[in-house]
Amino acid sequence: MSTPTIPQRSWAQRYHVKGIGWTVLLLVLLVASAQMTGVNVGMFFSNLGQFTNLLVRMSNPAWDYTTVIIQPLLETIQMAILGTTIGAAFAIPFAVLSASNLIHNRWLRGLTRLFLDLVRTLPDLLLAAIFVAIFGIGSTAGVITLAIFSFGMVSKLFYEVIETIDMGPLEALESVGATKITIIWYAVLPQILNQFISYFLYTLEINVRASTVLGYLGAGGIGVFLQRSLNEFNYNQTAVIILATLVVVLVIDGVSNHLRRVLL
């Protein structure tokens, strides 16, 4: 019997050359991009006074304004729910087609993903501007914009969830002689439903915030009022709008946490 030899690591492995190299490269890129784009950190601190000034002017919310914004806020929530639901519904088949553990055809998967990348590339503000031009000022343009935006985002989140599932139940259903659709319904869906709902609500939350911005372009909802208050330097009204939006976001977050606990 020979004495057991401890395997030798190379010099590069011992001093983690790769890890250190990547970290240094990232730092260099970070500093370089800050310099090239002219981001001035000093300016942030020297102009902090203006920021506090704004906060002071918002610190006295005009509470009576609340009654005015309830209606548009509800409209915003409705837009967000509609847009997210439509987007997520369309996202499911595309997420399935993009998941490498379900679709073995590289071309089909690649094509679907390319399409999704394209959708995600389109900025939501551009989409809003286009749809306002097509459908006129109002919430229709907002809903379609949010639907497309949600579709792009949710489909990526969804297919990443699908790729992490346990393949065992799929194998079992396949061995039973089930069709593809039955396999997905019985073996995939129960495994991902939880995270689907969680991501759906997260997207809904983002959409509530996004639709405040879309209002700027005339796509309906609370954004119209946000823009008006800012233009009129009515920061006390702006404060109310921000606080009201915060309440909505908190509620969605609460619902999301509750559902995840219940469904787990």
Binding site: D166, G168, P169, E171, A172, S175, V176, Y186, A187, P190, Q191, L193, N194
Partner: peptide, 14 residues
């Protein structure tokens, strides 16, 4: 042809 697996392969949440 029925099949039984080492990892049972049940749908856990169902």
């Amino acid at each position: 042809i029925g099949m039984i697996f080492q990892g049972f392969n049940l749908i856990n949440r169902s």
